[in-house]
Amino acid sequence: MTTYASGKIRTRWATIDDLPTLKKLINRSIDTLQVGFLTPEQIIASQAVMGLDTQLVEDGSYLIAEYDGVLAGCGGWSNRATLYGGDHSSDLRDPILLNPERDPARIRAMYTDPAFTRKGIGSLILKQCEQAAAEHGFRTAELMATLSGEPLYIASGYYPLERIEATGDGVNVPLIRMQKKLKP
């Protein structure tokens, strides 16, 4: 297992044992950090279209960030076609492997615990996921951003490709498909 450190933030690749704690962090993140960007109904609907895809953990491509030893954030990258969605959104999942020569890697399931925002957690995870994807031969990365995540991704060099609305529990949730060229 590779461990990286940046100040008080340490990252490591998640294991199956981390799943219960990750799910709690993800739910807190969705419920809290979308406030001000989405209506209460859209936040509830977000739970149906977002979440943890355990395939990322099984593939060894899902990072955990700890701040002074406390779980503070998570996120991953993937060489599979799925762009977004969790285990419960099977209609969005496509396990087909991507070709790094022609397809963009996927940046997936990025979440920060609300108690740890503005500490560089998301930026560090994003950078390490991009590095891992580049090491696997990918030249570009693509992600599906929430409205609250869009500023981080723009600041990190991503540009919007399209704005869509995903439907969860009959409610539309705005999302932005974004892309970035990776450094080799």
Rank of each mutant, 00 (worst) to 15 (best):
Q47M: 12
L33Q: 03
P184E: 11
D91G: 12
M144F: 07
P40V: 05
D18T: 04
Q131V: 10
E150I: 08
P104C: 09
Y4T: 06
G76I: 01
E58A: 14
E135F: 09
K181N: 13
R80C: 07
L63G: 04
G85K: 00
A5I: 09
L152Q: 06
H88M: 02
T2I: 13
R177E: 13
L92Y: 00
A141P: 03
T2F: 09
A72V: 02
R108F: 08
A105E: 05
P20C: 05
W13S: 13
G69H: 02
S61N: 13
P40W: 06
Y62H: 13
K23V: 12
P151T: 04
I176P: 02
M1R: 11
S123H: 09
T2K: 11
D103T: 07
A45N: 07
G168D: 10
Y153E: 06
L38C: 11
Q42P: 12
V57M: 06
L25D: 03
I44V: 12
K24F: 08
E162G: 09
T3E: 12
V49S: 03
L182F: 08
L83C: 12
R106H: 08
G168E: 09
K183W: 11
N27W: 07
D113F: 00
S29T: 04
Y84S: 15
L124V: 01
W77D: 04
T112L: 00
Y111N: 03
V57Y: 03
L175K: 13
A14T: 07
T2W: 05
D18E: 06
A72W: 01
R80K: 15
E165R: 14
I44T: 14
I96E: 15
I121A: 00
A115L: 10
M1K: 10
L52I: 10
P114V: 05
N27G: 11
F138I: 08
G122R: 01
M50G: 08
S78E: 09
Y158G: 06
Q47Y: 07
L143K: 05
N27T: 15
Q128I: 08
I164F: 10
D68R: 00
N79L: 10
I176C: 13
Y4S: 06
Q34V: 05
F116Q: 01
I16R: 13
A14Q: 07
N99W: 06
T82E: 04
A155C: 04
T82D: 03
L152W: 05
Y62P: 00
E142Y: 11
R163P: 06
D94R: 08
R108Q: 14
L71W: 02
P114E: 01
S61E: 13
